[in-house]
Design a protein around this nucleic acid. Structure first.
Lengths: 230, 230
DNA sequence: CGGTATCCCCCCTGATACTG
DNA sequence: CAGTATCAGGGGGGATACCG
């Protein structure tokens, strides 16, 4: 009779919490709100989530009317937010802004991950301020193991590609520094200029690209929020 | 090294989700946002949560800087929201509004609970439209077992008391009907007038009080939200 | 690429009792 | 009243392998 997972409360907060507050769920929603639609695309945003669990969550969200799964262009299933799901945007974003304001940055910076960071940067890179030609930006994190040290963002014709293996193009700009510094920049906790001055970051190559980096390197959507804690 | 419960992501959404999205947590926050401060007061709002777990969650929220526990007037511990906790209000309320819009009401109405309903009504009853004298409203749910059938709201000098045992006062108004009907009214899914007309609800006693019931019987904070699903 | 299947463990959770 | 102690059970979810 009594559903095990249910709070047993008619209150809309409780009903909503049953849908939203299971492990990984809001992170999956965050990925979908950011525009990911394919299974493996979603996985890149939640790499530590097992595919079985991601599949289960997607089905749950579909059953709840939040996600619609339908074959896309080439018959491949695409997951999209329903209108109900789209209306979760202010809630998920609100959680992010709250986290940015109230979670100690030291705590966040314990969770460094170059793959997630580069993936985020790829998504938010601003193409317009860049030269119209193809540009290749190489990121290097010297302190990391070889297989996670090198990343390339290739901007070409308005599209941005992220590579973890050398695409072979001539590199226009090298961005070399600690993963912690670049993550802090991404989160709006510091700036490129400050980290360069502090020798945590080095820009090598095209001077124009280097000078305009704060124009084209997008920051986290939450970077502007004023912090209330250290 | 790697914290087990952590998502391992620096993203503020993930950090916030670690704090907010464990079982029962948002319901505890809802209670605190509604004004409850004492342990057993909180328990009344989450009756199916074990005291051990409530205690654990309160400690977690305290560690996260969301809740402040401090001895109150008579040395009894009182739990209050910190500024960070208070800033969760739009998020928790947002979840409620979203639930009201997008969760099928049939689903909510599977979770009927007279104790929660009466506790909510006690909290939101509007004293001003009532006569200045002491008023006793008796609620009866004939279909329920004897021990959950009878409830009394006693309004006296601006204070509202909820009793599940007869306080002994003369009753000014009897509200008799199905728990489902009264819950639906509380949630804004229907109105007193409609349920009376449909014979799901009966008002007996003081005609003035009966006539003004929609003035003094407060509704759920989410009742006004326009529904998008059945 | 896009998922299932399987295994298994740990911890969450619920229940009950108890204590200051 | 305000919790803590203890215990048992179940399932959530992590890891890995596998399949179409």
């Amino acid at each position: 009779m009594e559903d095990k997972g249910s709070y047993g409360q008619f209150c809309p907060v409780a009903m909503a919490a049953e849908v939203l507050c299971s492990r990984w769920t809001v992170l999956v929603l965050r990925e979908m709100l950011a525009g990911s639609t394919r299974f493996n695309e979603l996985r890149r945003g939640v790499p530590r989530m097992s595919p079985a669990l991601l599949s289960k969550r997607l089905k749950e969200l579909e059953a709840a009317g939040v996600v619609v799964a339908a074959p896309g262009e080439r018959g491949v299933v695409e997951y999209r937010l329903s209108p109900a799901g789209e209306e979760l945007r202010p809630i998920v974003m609100g959680m992010g802004f709250w986290g940015q304001r109230w979670i100690e940055s030291q705590l966040s910076l314990k969770n460094l991950d170059p793959s997630l960071l580069m993936w985020d940067m790829r998504r938010n890179l601003r193409v317009e301020p860049m030269p119209p030609r193809r540009c290749t930006i190489a990121f290097q994190y010297p302190e990391l193991a070889e297989n996670r040290r090198h990343w390339w963002l290739v901007v070409n014709g308005g599209a941005v590609d992220l590579c973890s293996v050398d695409p072979g193009f001539e590199v226009d700009l090298y961005v070399v520094g600690s993963l912690r510094a670049l993550t802090a920049i991404w989160m709006g906790l510091t700036t490129v200029g400050r980290e360069v001055a502090a020798k945590q970051l080095e820009l090598l190559g095209d001077a124009m690209l280097a000078r305009s980096i704060e124009q084209w390197l997008g920051l986290s959507p939450f970077a502007g929020e004023t912090r209330k804690v250290a």
